[in-house]
Nucleic acid binder design. Structure first.
Length: 278
DNA sequence: ATTGCCTGCGTGG
DNA sequence: CCACGCAGGCAAT
């Protein structure tokens, strides 16, 4: 899956958003990403496993509203304490967290590997300690350096070294959708108590579902805190595995995303396509 | 579907 | 403490 595939997808989504009023045809969209309708079809089948037409349906406001309606309530009845488990696609995610204060005492001589690899949603920067994955960010050509910088800023005492092959292996496991993988991932994050609480509730949202910021606020018993929740979500250091892309506006608008709203839409539609294949 | 006004909250100084 | 800004919500159109 070359990176150019995702770039085309993203471009198509942007074009659709910008021309939503005129309801562009498939031919028109294909033209906007400089592909023949035939190649456009093939690209989508390869990338998402579904036709562009189906894919477009997953991008509509109606579909998003339906997701919100079907999702009901996040089950937050996990054990109190800083760990939680969730099924995500065909693998499990556990979350371990420290507050910045705790980290100050424990965080000496920690080792972090990092590397850049290629996902269905563009290049990813992944960082991992012995205790778990501590960063996953999507990168574009103009922010290549930022991910490494934020890793260094977050873990100033750590020994950080490049290990592309480890991250490439990890990347394959993370974005693998085949049922036999059944991988387990351990995440190791640093955040305020509030942030961690919010991130934990995100991990409990399974693929193919979506919640509004309001619903997440309800789930942590802070019904008036939707904006604070949005703030906390925006600080999520581990994209995709902490599925902040599954939180959208209550109106069905996909809303903002740290790594670009189009990418959020792409991931959601891709998940929708994969879930229904199960 | 789009605007504009409103909110309460955590965060950082 | 207090001021700030927010990846939001909601009502009106």
């Amino acid at each position: 899956m070359p990176n150019t595939h995702y770039e085309k997808i993203e471009k198509a989504i942007r074009y659709i958003n910008e021309n939503s009023k005129t309801q562009p045809s498939l031919e028109e969209i294909a033209g906007a990403v400089s592909l023949s309708p035939f190649h456009f079809q093939r690209l989508f089948r390869q990338w998402a496993g579904i036709s562009p037409k189906r894919f477009l349906q997953f991008l509509t406001i109606n579909h998003a509203k339906k997701l919100l309606k079907d999702s009901s309530v996040i089950d937050v009845s996990f054990e109190i304490g800083l760990s939680s488990q969730s099924r995500l696609h065909d693998h499990f995610v556990t979350l371990e967290a420290v507050t910045p204060g705790q980290f100050k005492n424990e965080g000496r001589d920690m080792k972090i590997d990092y590397g850049i690899s290629h996902s269905p949603f563009g290049s990813v920067f992944i960082g991992a300690t012995e205790r778990g994955i501590c960063q996953l960010s999507f990168i574009s050509k103009d922010n290549r350096r930022d991910s490494l910088k934020s890793l260094r800023d977050a873990w100033p005492n750590a020994t950080i070294s490049e290990n592309c092959s480890r991250m490439d292996t990890l990347r394959k496991q993370i974005f693998n959708t085949h049922a036999e993988s059944n991988e387990k991932f351990h995440l190791f994050v640093q955040g305020s108590n509030f942030q961690v609480k919010v991130w934990e509730s995100l991990v409990r949202i399974s693929a193919g579902k979506a919640f509004s910021y309001q619903q997440v606020a309800n789930s942590i018993a802070l019904p008036s805190g939707s904006r604070a929740v949005a703030n906390a979500i925006a600080k999520n250091p581990i994209g995709y595995l902490i599925p902040c892309h599954r939180v959208i506006r209550s109106t069905g608008v996909i809303g903002g995303y740290r790594w670009g709203s189009e990418r959020k839409q792409a991931i959601l539609a891709w998940e929708a396509a994969n879930v229904q294949n199960v």
